[in-house]
Design a protein around this nucleic acid. Sequence first.
DNA 1: GTCTATAGCCGGATAGAC
DNA 2: GTCTATCCGGCTATAGAC
Lengths: 235, 235
Amino acid sequence: MSESWPHNSSIHAFKQKMPFNQSSIYRALFHAFSSRIQVQREDAAVPNLEKILRATFRLSGRHSFEAMSLRDLSRETGISMGGLYNYIGSKDDLADMIESFMDVHMANTGRQFVNQIQDPRSRLEMSIRVYIYMGEMFQPWYQFIFMETRSMTRRQKEMAKGMEIRDVNMFREVVESGQQQGTFDPLIDAGMVGSSIIAMIQNWYLKNWRFAKEGVSAGDYADFTIRAVTKLLAR
Amino acid sequence: MSESWPHNSSIHAFKQKMPFNQSSIYRALFHAFSSRIQVQREDAAVPNLEKILRATFRLSGRHSFEAMSLRDLSRETGISMGGLYNYIGSKDDLADMIESFMDVHMANTGRQFVNQIQDPRSRLEMSIRVYIYMGEMFQPWYQFIFMETRSMTRRQKEMAKGMEIRDVNMFREVVESGQQQGTFDPLIDAGMVGSSIIAMIQNWYLKNWRFAKEGVSAGDYADFTIRAVTKLLAR
DNA sequence: GTCTATAGCCGGATAGAC
DNA sequence: GTCTATCCGGCTATAGAC
């Protein structure tokens, strides 16, 4: 299943360049929202925030965020009901922290990996790889956004749609620039390509149960996706 | 956006060959589950079943099935709480009716369209088209299965996974038969192709809000998907 | 900074009148 | 076949002790 790809785009190299990882992301989250959080001592707040977020992902995955009760969350984290409210303003606010963090910090981080690449083909390939690797590293976060935002407030729904449209457009623009430059087939609809790439990326973090069973790694999946897109865009 | 395809595979031709449509499906549902439903008079039961199912799709879409209350459902249908229980055994049972109907009746219906086609390329193309057209016709049903089964009972979750695996394998087998026959590139992983086709089909019924905004029809989408898969499998 | 106790509301389900 | 009335347990959120 494995194929060769440039050494510096392996998932290990990628992880080392990230400003935060699956664990340290909770410290970044704390600093991003410390004004909203009542507990100010970092050494007390960060481990509890991590417990709360991890349990939220676990319980939302088993049920749904809406159907997850704060009693469940209290039991799962070992933090009392009253204690939880020192970290979150309300149940709604908990969802908002997750979504807002994705919208601002996660998205900016992803962009840094591709912004300096000019060549459309390299930029397209690296973008696909980075999105899939981020989906691998932060799978619960992405799945949460995909599955839960539809039942949130109007504002939160719009934020999620905005993120998706921004991503589709990013891919559409890379494809268009490659078409203008003569690298890609100009007869293929760039918007449809962008939309399909997003579908493939979402498929990776939504169907990880199937890929794990079949022994398909994030690298394998990125290779396959890049190959399919390359063939589709070949002149 | 539109391209040419065989006349008999237009969505209109497809709809005429279906044994039920968006409206008459509720009659089929009633007959499939009349042993579980207390109300036996068809002329009373079918319109109420339709009200109940349509409202369930609407409310589950706005929130989630788990978070939808039977009080909401009662208000939305105009049927009292007590009245609802003459049609469903429990809230769980309502979800089970939807899922079981999809598992047996809907899946068999789809299969009839492709079973007589032997040539791998034609069979692959028709399968993609039929799945996308069914996703178009019964969008709320498919979206319900995709979004809600994860929070159901173990049995119901397994049923949903089984449906998905069956679909992926169907596509994998068509691709493999084309590879053995020498029509398709034998170096492409057939399982990954199957999985990606399912992702594209699900993308159609999950992201209809975006495609509607961009004026992409089910026919357009099927054409694009078939073209992408054809290019990927070309030798 | 963390806990227990409680307020006040809403959930699924059923009994029994009509 | 459809309704109203009701049981009782679980829900979010807060008050106030430590």
